[in-house]
Amino acid sequence: MLIKQLSVFIENKKGTLANLTGALVKNNLDIRAIAVFDTNEFGIVRLVVDNPDKALEVLKKEGFIAKLSRVIAIEPEDAPGSLNKIFNILSEHDINIDYIYSFVMRLHELPYIAFKVDKLEKAVEILTANGINVVNSEEIRGK
């Protein structure tokens, strides 16, 4: 139930993000989630796209240093405290979150959230057992 995430190395300078997304657009790839954190001179962009394998190929061909890895995507309930509940569950089971980011929101859609944790399989198992909707890659591709 894990989804593929792209990690891309970028320098913190004008135009690098535009180059990156431009390469994806040219190849009809759709970005479903994007995150880049405040960095000094260089950083890592995390992306979820509709066709990650093709995106990796495209980016490598364009000379980017890019890698596919796996993250969990969940669909939290639209209710107060739902995220807090999820974090508590993970914490109780000794799972550490490296980073999280949310998907690009569209109308009539609940926001998905991507998680990178240290014990991926265990986290999926626990979240599912606790009634949290863990999203699979088909669902992301279909939306």
């Binding site: 990690s7 190395f9 954190f37 890592i44 240093i65 890019a66 890698k67």
Partner: peptide, 8 residues
């Protein structure tokens, strides 16, 4: 080397 992209 893309293996350095696993974490910042």
């Amino acid at each position: 080397d893309e293996d350095f992209l696993d974490s910042f």
